[in-house]
Design a binder for these strands. Structure first.
Lengths: 297, 297
DNA sequence: TTGATTGATACCTTGCCGGTATGGCGTTCA
DNA sequence: TGAACGCCATACCGGCAAGGTATCAATCAA
């Protein structure tokens, strides 16, 4: 037969007071049931815990070590519900965030700072993934929150526009386009070789660029999907590239930037994205915090 | 109102089976009282632990964390009588040691041998836990002694450097880095895909590696926290990994090791760690013995 | 639509827990 | 030295709560 937490409380009280009567009073009960509790506890443990010598009560050696065990058990039993409640209310927990590499250099830092300040007990796991992976990850609950670019299905996902930025042209230092002193237009580009976005893996940028510079696909010398790779290729003199403004923060030697003229001034959108079906309570709190989060451009 | 250990056992059984009927059978009771046990437990905890949707049962986020608390409580409740009985039958103390998985393959064995020889009347309980868990465990006296890596607070903890070892690069057999015949440097690694340490759960190694190989974070193909997992991923050809030398003792097929060049020759430290506040008398004696214990490299 | 599955509810019975009363034993004074 | 007191254990009783049986309600599969 196993012991109960009540018996432990009784034992700790008696061990504190070394007196059954006072211990019982502290537990707001009478002495006889307390005596029986202790007897049962000793039978369950299989060792004598207290020496009662009809005048005084003392702890045995076994009782001494069992007392620390009992205290630890009770402490754990008292705090465990608190832990669960905190998770349930979302004030503690884990939120897994997927993000595109490019968003790192824009707004992820400030966003994480806000979270750390307002929800210090929420752990954030970060995973770098492209938009398509994020969409899949949200659906099978691999991540809770995404930082991604359109398009995505408004039915299954909640989203919020987080950030807009202009499009830049990246070119090797000294390139003629950098000297224009004004935004670059499609006409300026002509037959310039272009490091192009992959139409499959970076479809968002691909569509955006093709909508502005119709000829671009003709001059593509490379097709890649990572902004960083593009800038390296630009630095290596392979051609020019179209990148979001936040890429200018990357410290790549030998690359300069100039604004690209677009119908919309800031066409590059980054959205917060989450699965409506998510049951992660921490996610709700995180969304509340990020609702108030504004992005400094 | 507080919960009982019986309710915890009920909850753990249901969480294991995700089925009230089977869980009840395992507990040798019928289903209705089990349902009520869980309801009472949820009221006592103050959070919903299980999602019952009349066809299937799932754990909520709060249930997930409460489950680990419940398991810990029950484990403690099961071992506590054992501890008391051992003392009752002559053992003079128990020391609980937390250790990281990696340290097992280095020095834990010899250390335990020393203890068994010099303090045969002290029982040793072992628990595998990461550094952060050890720090928490020491503070709430769940363990008495830790084998962990920096950093930790020198105010509340006593510590002693126990062991230093070099850092290795793990790569698939036949990999070019293994053929160099000399320690690997940051330049050798280049754009090699890397199985990286988690910056949150394996912060010590993360910081260590990032300090030596600045590009590592760019090429991270996986982020994990267990050395064994890293080696499996390396064996599967996912990339290379940075591991402490003791990991080379793990018998993983198809993985080779080569020294990583570091500013300090043996940068990986393992410390003995204990809470200054500890009142466990056996701990004092153990520390005296380990004071004389030296580690054969 | 119907039968099967599964968790919740209603109601009953019983066993356990705590209460009061009292006993046994030792200590303390007059 | 013995009477009174202090303290823990035991006996016995009553209420409550836990478990069992029967059944309901909801969902899913055929």
């Amino acid at each position: 037969m196993a012991f109960t937490l009540e018996q432990l409380r009784g034992f700790v009280a008696v061990a504190d007071e070394l007196h059954f009567g006072r211990a019982a009073a502290r537990l707001k009960m009478t002495q006889p049931p307390l005596s029986r509790q202790i007897q049962k506890l000793e039978r369950a443990v299989g060792a004598q815990l207290l020496e009662r010598d009809n005048r005084r009560v003392t702890l045995t050696a076994a009782g001494e070590v069992f007392l620390t065990e009992a205290r630890r058990l009770l402490a754990l039993a008292d705090t465990a519900p608190e832990v669960a409640r905190r998770v349930s209310s979302g004030s503690s927990g884990i939120v897994r965030i997927g993000f595109t590499a490019a968003s790192t250099y824009g707004i992820l830092g400030g966003l994480l700072n806000d979270l750390a300040r307002e929800l210090p007990d929420v752990d954030v796991d970060l995973a770098e993934m492209v938009t398509r992976e994020q969409v899949a990850g949200l659906l099978d609950e691999e991540i809770d929150l995404g930082l991604a670019r359109p398009p995505f299905d408004a039915e299954s996902f909640g989203s919020r526009l987080l950030h807009r930025e202009p499009m830049l042209v990246a070119a090797r230092t000294g390139h003629r386009l950098l000297e224009l002193g004004r935004p670059v237009t499609a006409a300026d580009i002509g037959a310039e070789p272009v490091v192009m976005h992959s139409p499959t893996r970076a479809r968002y940028f691909y569509d955006l660029v093709v909508g502005v510079v119709p000829v671009a696909s003709e001059n593509a010398v490379h097709v890649v999907s990572q902004v960083l790779t593009m800038l390296w290729l630009v630095a290596a003199g392979r051609g020019i590239a179209f990148v979001p403004a936040s890429a200018a923060r990357l410290p790549i030697e030998g690359v300069g930037f100039v604004r690209l003229a677009t119908p919309v001034p800031e066409p590059v959108e980054l959205h917060l994205l989450w699965a409506r079906q998510s049951r992660n309570p921490a996610l709700r709190r995180v969304l509340e915090v990020l609702e108030r989060h504004t992005v400094s451009a």
